[in-house]
Design a protein around this nucleic acid. Sequence first.
DNA 1: CGGAAGCGTAACACGTCGGTTACGCGTCAG
DNA 2: CTGACGCGTAACCGACGTGTTACGCTTCCG
Lengths: 120, 120
Amino acid sequence: MDEVAGAVADRVRREILLMLRDGPLTAGQIADRFAISRPAVSRHLRVLREAGLVSDAADGRHRVYALVTAPIEELMGWLAELTRPSAWQHRFDALETEVYRTRRERRTAAGPDRSEEKTA
Amino acid sequence: MDEVAGAVADRVRREILLMLRDGPLTAGQIADRFAISRPAVSRHLRVLREAGLVSDAADGRHRVYALVTAPIEELMGWLAELTRPSAWQHRFDALETEVYRTRRERRTAAGPDRSEEKTA
DNA sequence: CGGAAGCGTAACACGTCGGTTACGCGTCAG
DNA sequence: CTGACGCGTAACCGACGTGTTACGCTTCCG
């Protein structure tokens, strides 16, 4: 998943994925759409391949790339969990608890310091 | 969105977002959870802030960070579009078309190797 | 065959990223 | 007021990513 997020985090690679959404394309067709050199595009394709976001198939002297959506959905699943609150419907009560916890920790480690009662 | 994807593409930052899912935390509390130095965490928080993924609020000498889910949903929206087929329900028939077109282009050999005219 | 087309890799330059230590500035406590 | 605490920033450095050009391998066509 690290690789998937990293792959999507690049503008060129996102553009490639968008192109591939409309159907498979050869490496040359993809490269033609960018101002950068073909080797650069080739390496972008390599990143996408290693992230599992595209599949490649040799066809004569062409190499055809196709979009693979499975890793995308996996990433979407992770993101969806973020938007789902876990054990925190009590508004900001948890903040108070956390601050208190840290204070206790620090006290045991550093010494006398009963300070920030301010909480929130 | 570039920034959002880039922010999520880092392991430490993803962990921070997960921590924040359970409620706001101070910078110190976040930093305590990692083996890296606090300045390093501070910069991760800066990246998250500039991506709009967290909100920060000064509270005394503490700084409280909270998760902001809006950009996440935006990224999810972009990813969802990838999984949606656009004008291509004919399985891999398009592949054949693309390869054929490319071959023809080369055969004409007039020079211009523009390919992307068929999708558009 | 032999040469051109298609594509990937190798080697290299360079900006960016993520880490560290040193420091500054505001805030709370005594 | 003074000193400790919390946190961010500055300066620096090694690693990685992205771009380039040069090259090699495979495939097609005349």
